[in-house]
Computed example of a mutant assay.
Amino acid sequence: MLDFAVQTAREAGHILAERFGRVTEVSHKGEINLVTEADLASERFIIERIKSYYPRHAILAEESGASVERGSDYVWIVDPLDGTTNYAHGYPVFAVSIALEYRGEIVLGVVYDPMRDELFAAERGAGATLNGRRVRVSDVEDLSKAMLCTGFPYDVRERGELIGHFRNFIMTAQAVRRDGSAALDLAYVACGRFDGFWEEGLNPWDVAAGVLLVEEAGGRVTDYAGHPFSSYYAPVLASNGLIHEAMMRVLAPT
C-alpha cells in the first residue's frame, strides 16, 4: 500500500503543479482559511483512486470530511494541498499529504512536494526515506544551535500565548522559520533540515503522515507536556529527540 500512496501523491502533486500560478477560483472556509479549485481537483483525484483500489476503506479528507465504511479497520487521512494560502499567493511551499491509519495507528505516510520533486515516505517499523534514500533526524543537542519551525492556527489573532511561544523560541533558538505547511515542516524535521517543530490548532490531515516520518527517522513526537501524541488532538511537538526536553521547557505554561 505504500507504493500506492506514493504514486497517488505524485499524481495529485502533478495536478497542483500544473495549476500553480494560474489560480482563478479562491473561496473562504473562514475569515482567512482558503480553498482553491486545485485543492478540490487534487482531493477528487485522490478519493477516486482510493475508492477504486480500496473500496472498503474509510477516508478522512480535508475538504470532503469523513467517509466512513462500516467495519473498516483502515482510514486514509488526506490533505490534497497542505499550504493552500501559500499556493493561492504563488509562494512555492506546499505539499500533498497522505497517511493510512490501521486500527487507530498510523502505519504509512507520504508527503510530496511537487515544486522540488521531493517525496518523503515512511512505513511503520521500516524507516523514513526521501526520494528512496533513508533519512534521519539531526544530531543537534543544544537548543541555542537549533533551527526550528512552527505555524499559527487561523485564530492566532485571538491567541496571544502563541505569539509568546514564538517570541520565546526566537530568544532561545538559533533560528525560527514559519513556512505555512505543517506537512513539509515535519518532513524537514525527519530529514534533519529542521531540528524541531511545534504548533497547535492542526487537524489530522495536516500531521498524520509527517508525524510518522519523524518517528521513523528517529525523532520524538509528543504534545507540549510530553504525553503521547494523537493526530486527533492538538498540540504537536516534534523534534530530533535531543532538544525535546528543552523545547518542552520553553512551551511550559507559566
Rank of each mutant, 00 (worst) to 15 (best):
K29F: 07
E11K: 14
S97V: 05
T254F: 14
G210K: 01
D117L: 02
M171E: 15
R22L: 13
A246W: 03
A99Y: 02
S72E: 07
T24S: 14
L60W: 13
G109Y: 03
R49Q: 08
V250M: 07
V75W: 11
F197T: 00
R133Q: 12
E216S: 00
L162T: 03
E18I: 02
G104R: 08
V107L: 04
G219C: 00
V110R: 06
H28F: 13
S138A: 04
V137Y: 02
A17D: 13
P92T: 03
E118M: 08
Y154N: 15
A66F: 13
H165E: 04
I98K: 09
L16W: 04
Y232R: 15
A61H: 02
A209K: 04
H165R: 08
D206S: 10
P80A: 08
A173E: 00
T85S: 14
G219A: 02
G13Y: 05
L2K: 12
S231G: 10
A234V: 10
E43C: 00
D155G: 09
E199K: 10
Y224W: 13
Y74D: 15
K29P: 01
N168W: 08
Y74V: 13
I98T: 03
L148I: 00
D142K: 12
I77H: 05
V107N: 05
V211T: 10
T24E: 15
